[in-house]
Amino acid sequence: MNIFRFAGDMTHLISILVLLLKVYATKSCSGISLKTQELYGIVFLARYLDLFTDFISVYNTVMKLVFIGSSLAIVWCMRFHRVVKRSYDRDVDTFRHYFLVGGCFLLALFVHEKFSFREVFWAFSIYLEAVAILPQLILLQRSGNVDNLTGQYVLFLGAYRGFYILNWIYRYFTEDQFSRWISCVSGLVQTALYADFFYYYFISWKNNAKLKLPA
């Protein structure tokens, strides 16, 4: 564990806490893409298949349970909670995310570290996480103004993988046979997808204005 990875995990945790706060405090999921939440649920379920077989540390196991539990809880809330689901706007959350699932799985079948069930699903989860934010970013562009909690959620979610990139650089220089090129390339793509959001978020923060993404 290094400071970059710990900062990344904490930033990721904060993004989840901000999202949970928004949904439970406001009893509303306006501005949140159910499709992105479903993709994240698939990402965590596909990545943490080793949850009960490989014990790394208490921290690792607890964080995996938190990530799986929170993503499924948000999906459940947006689909079935009688108050929250009323604020879900199906008409703006129209990204065809099943193509992302199919495409990433196909890619994982061809590009992986080892052709085994666990490794293919792990590579699939890495590729899927890189593009999972797309429905959410498209929804924000469509819905124009972005409420503060939703904006902070996306900001922290985008920042966490940026910290992981620093972690991979650090590990590359400090560990001899460290090679996570699948994670690194996907992590770079994932963080790059947030670039324009980061730019408009910074502009709105500098001008102390409401965050607006150009359509």
Partner: peptide, 10 residues
């Protein structure tokens, strides 16, 4: 062959 390194990252 060399076993894949354990995935210790989240």
């Amino acid at each position: 062959g060399q076993t894949a390194p354990v995935k210790d990252e989240l």
